[in-house]
Write a protein that binds this DNA or RNA. Structure first.
Lengths: 185, 185
DNA sequence: CCGCTCATGTAACTGGTTACATGATTTA
DNA sequence: TAAATCATGTAACCAGTTACATGAGCGG
């Protein structure tokens, strides 16, 4: 008896995107990922094209090649088996890798600020604050292109992005304060 | 002229850990990662042992094999070149992959809640809230084992974990409210 | 006509995962 | 003494990255 196949985070996320966008091409998926304010999904061709072929082989997607004039276009659609896989990924139950603190590259770096000189630490915090400003702008422009109102869950994701930036800014402020409190070195 | 070698996130994080823990073995690094409340770094043997050998070949770590009785122990130490690499990774300038919203597997899943029935959505939100409770407990026990006071940056990381869970709980509450507002389906 | 974007892919590489192997030491 | 943990690794696999190739359509 075959144990049910496991799919990667990227695979399941892609599955979800195809479901959400409706029939779409790997190119559409890639563009969507690249425009997102998250660097998590690079959307590189070498990742997405083979991935969607894999999902097709597993019966989670079906492809239909069209041809407007001489331009070919391959559209994938989620099958009912694909829907089931998507639901299983979302949970409940939540898979262990979903039960975690979120991954923040700024936190990873802040952990080792002790290796820097006090001046460098202050510079780093400033740079990090600027980076969050930049992210904030990206989230905002993303929110505008994908005008909420579509569905409440897209709105929830946008809201998550907003809150995420705000919270991390507040955290950075705390870090900055803890720096000045030891500023006599 | 060789362009300066790039290192992966895991490589740099490991470098930082070795710097922070002082001379230590791959086993120590693995244990540290596995006990962390984050699932980001699995700390699998097949990842860490070759990785630290790589860092040694690149001159960022030096190894010293000891032998207490019959038990062998290999200890790595960060070189000055390793310190430089660590500082470069931390920044500034922050590398592009650090300038991003944080990665939250709950957000990734919430995006596609539209595929579920209203009842399933409510179950999911409950499960997610429970998951965050679980994470909160893990963060707390982590905080206790790595008693802050060591350095302010460890404290900052612990604080980040605390805030992270709180913020996401607040976000989940919002999601839940947006569900009930459409509960007539 | 040149360059840009659209669009689909492949090839080579490599970092990380899972699983296994080995042996010493501690604990029930 | 059997099982669990400490401790070090290797081998096979595979997903994702970078870089390249190809060709259609479009704007200046």
């Amino acid at each position: 008896m075959r144990t049910p196949r496991k799919h990667s985070e990227l695979e399941c996320f892609t599955l979800g995107l195809v479901w959400q966008l409706g029939p779409c091409s790997p190119y559409d998926v890639r563009r969507h990922m690249q425009q997102s304010p998250s660097t998590q999904w690079s959307g590189s061709a070498g990742a997405i094209y083979p991935l969607m072929q894999r999902l097709q082989r597993r019966g989670l997607l079906v492809a239909k090649s069209e041809r407007n004039g001489k331009r070919r276009r391959k559209e994938y659609t989620v099958t009912s088996k694909g829907i089931a896989a998507l639901k299983e990924w979302i949970g409940p139950p939540l898979s262990p890798e979903a039960v975690t603190v979120s991954y923040d590259p700024l936190r990873s770096r802040a952990r080792f600020l002790g290796v820097m000189t006090p001046a460098q630490r202050r510079e780093w915090v400033e740079a990090a604050a600027a980076a969050l400003q930049e992210v904030s702008r990206r989230v905002e422009s993303w929110r505008q292109t994908y005008a909420t109102g579509d569905d409440p869950f897209t709105a929830a994701v946008n809201r998550h992005g907003e809150l995420d930036v705000q919270w991390r800014q507040a955290w950075l402020d705390e870090v900055q304060n803890s720096l000045t409190s030891i500023h006599k070195e």
